[in-house]
Simulated scan of single mutants.
Amino acid sequence: MTTAPPPLLSAQDLHVTFPGRHGAAPARAVDGVELDIGAGEIVALVGESGCGKTTLARTLLGLVPPTSGRVSFAGKPLEYSSRALKAYRRRVQLVLQDPSGSLNPRHTVYDAVAEGLRIHGYGGDERSAVAQALSRAGLRPPERFFLRYPHELSGGQRQRVVIAGALVLEPELIVADEPVASLDASVRGEILALLLRLRTELGLSALVVTHDLGLAWNIADRVAVMYLGRIVETGAVEQVLTAPRHPYTQALLSVLPDAPGTPVLLTGDPPDPSRIPSGCRFHARCQILTNGEAERAGVAEACRGRELEVLGGGGERQVACHWARATV
């Protein structure tokens, strides 16, 4: 009997807590997360602003050490010495949402892409490596872009330069934080198609952090929906986005342009990681509790008072919701 290979990247019972300011309660930005990303898999991490998804992504990159729990890569726990993190960041690269902020306006495209090679003491042919990375990112012929500056490029071209800067070290996984949020709609499809092509050609894995469920639908194999520091629903993208079971996922989907029915307007206070409620952490804003469906299903008290367990990090369909489980 063959055993399945370990996930390429894995978070196990991950917690990240920041101290409160001026005597305020600590902020539990990541509050118990299990998340696996397999080799060649694209996972979308979805949620509204303030849900903890960027903190989780930074922790997976080793930029923020966890308060407890651990991050593993290729089956080995991540170490936080300078040497270990430098080696890790050759294998896992970050792509930020704002290419203008990611690129030094005084550096040419060549220098921007070559920076990672120089930091890591690359011993090969630098010019060839830069040209190959630019070509893979869709900037061809690459030599035509070597001496250009960021202000001479379009937004889509700048994002391709950022992607080339990540690719030049030949990583196994990229973490893309809102990779198309600052781009025109006409360019977004090109960048998404590029990420999918890189997965096909290079076997690249990706974690795509986004608030946009439409983007997740177009690019991801699997989706993890995050609310107030935890994954509340996860599974194959087709399962979750065609038949969402968690009320929060339903609300996020309801405001997409082509969504059927009436958009769900969430009431109550926005999520505050320093004031996590008892019971289901979404219950204070939950439309299912407000409209009486949870009461009719006999789970209203559980919603308000019984906390749900942390979901597993694998690929199976899971939901952290008393009502969804009662009405299967």
Rank of each mutant, 00 (worst) to 15 (best):
R230W: 10
G261T: 00
T262R: 15
T249A: 04
G229R: 08
P257T: 15
A259P: 00
P247G: 07
A224N: 10
Y248Q: 03
V264A: 01
L228M: 12
G261R: 03
P244E: 00
A259N: 02
L228A: 04
A243G: 12
A236V: 13
E238R: 03
V264Q: 07
L253K: 12
P247I: 15
Q250T: 09
H246T: 05
G229A: 01
G229C: 03
T242A: 03
T249M: 09
Q250R: 15
A259C: 05
Y248L: 04
T242K: 07
Q239N: 14
R230V: 12
L256I: 06
P260F: 13
Y248D: 03
A251K: 14
E238A: 13
V223T: 07
G229Q: 08
T262E: 14
R230M: 10
G261P: 00
H246C: 06
P247K: 15
L252F: 08
T249C: 06
A243S: 12
Y227P: 05
S254V: 01
P257D: 13
P244D: 02
P263C: 12
T262K: 15
E238T: 15
V223I: 11
L256K: 03
L253Q: 12
V225F: 10
G235A: 00
E238W: 00
L241H: 11
H246R: 14
A243D: 15
A224K: 09
V237Q: 03
T242F: 03
L228C: 03
V232N: 07
V264P: 02
T242C: 11
L252H: 11
L228W: 02
V240H: 05
V264I: 13
L256A: 10
V255H: 07
L252I: 08
E238V: 14
M226V: 12
V223M: 02
P244L: 03
L252D: 02
M226T: 04
L252T: 06
P247F: 14
Q239Y: 01
L265V: 14
P244S: 00
A224Q: 07
V225I: 15
G229T: 12
Q250N: 04
G235P: 14
I231S: 04
A236G: 15
L252A: 07
V225P: 12
T262G: 04
V240C: 06
P260K: 15
V225M: 02
R230H: 09
A259H: 01
A251E: 01
E238D: 15
R245V: 10
Y227L: 02
D258N: 12
G235H: 08
A243L: 04
R245I: 07
Y227Q: 05
E233M: 10
L253C: 08
T242Y: 01
R245Y: 06
T242N: 09
V223A: 00
A236N: 13
P247A: 14
A259K: 10
L253M: 13
T234K: 05
T234Q: 09
G235Y: 02
L241V: 11
T262H: 11
V264Y: 02
G235N: 03
M226P: 10
P247N: 09
L265W: 08
V240N: 06
R230F: 09
E233R: 11
V225L: 06
R230Y: 06
G235T: 08
Q239L: 06
L256Q: 13
A224I: 13
A243P: 10
V255T: 15
V255S: 14
P257H: 15
P244K: 05
A251M: 08
L241S: 05
Q239C: 10
